[in-house]
């Protein structure tokens, strides 16, 4: 791990508001990475061991299926986090991820992050709350998408 400047990391949505000492810890576990379009961040079924905080660009979460091939589930953009599967069994990626556009991100080694959180329960609590907020946001969006938001028979004015 090379580490990144705490000041740069502190501006990311996921980190914003944390105490300086916590940001400094996280910065020590982070690496600034750059991905060209088409670069695979991870593959479905692989060992989940990183959390990426996107600074710029877009990453697509995807699944490979027979027939249509690669199905994009969702795109994750600037200010957002990608890579949640390390938080619970089986600790393997549930989807794949590929950079859609030139993308920069802070990559956090989740083994180191977990050690920090275990050693500092206050940091651990704050990180878990933020990860839960990300997961809740995704769950909410997924439920809404299941409603087929745009395909309803409710266009702007009523049509019999």
């Amino acid at each position: 791990m090379n580490g990144v400047a705490p000041g740069a990391l502190a501006n990311h949505e996921f980190v914003r508001g944390l105490a300086d000492r916590h940001v400094a810890l996280l910065a020590g576990a982070a690496t600034l990475v750059t991905f060209e379009p088409g670069h695979r961040l991870f593959e479905e079924g692989g060992q989940a061991s990183s959390l990426w905080l996107i600074r710029s660009g877009h990453v697509a979460l995807d699944l490979h299926v027979a027939g249509p091939g690669r199905l994009i589930v969702e795109t994750i953009g600037s200010g957002e986090a990608i890579g949640l599967s390390w938080q619970g069994p089986p600790f393997r990626w549930q989807f794949g991820a590929e950079a859609v556009h030139p993308t920069t991100a802070f990559e956090l080694d989740t083994g180191v992050l977990t050690d920090f959180c275990d050693a500092d329960p206050e940091l651990g609590y704050l990180i878990v709350r933020r990860l839960l907020a990300v997961a809740l946001h995704r769950l909410h969006a997924t439920r809404i998408r299941m409603l087929d938001l745009y395909a309803s028979s409710h266009p702007p004015v009523s049509l019999p």
Binding site: E74, T75, G77, H101, A141, I144, R145, L149, Y150, H154
Partner: peptide, 30 residues
């Protein structure tokens, strides 16, 4: 190669100046 997700996520990601924003929204009621 564009976004995949809800239109509300575009709102979340947009660089808005709320005090200077007037918004017009149209689509299904939900």
């Amino acid at each position: 190669t564009g976004n995949v997700g809800l239109v509300t996520q575009l709102i979340d990601r947009a660089d808005l100046d709320p005090a200077q924003t007037t918004a017009m929204v149209c689509g299904p009621e939900l």
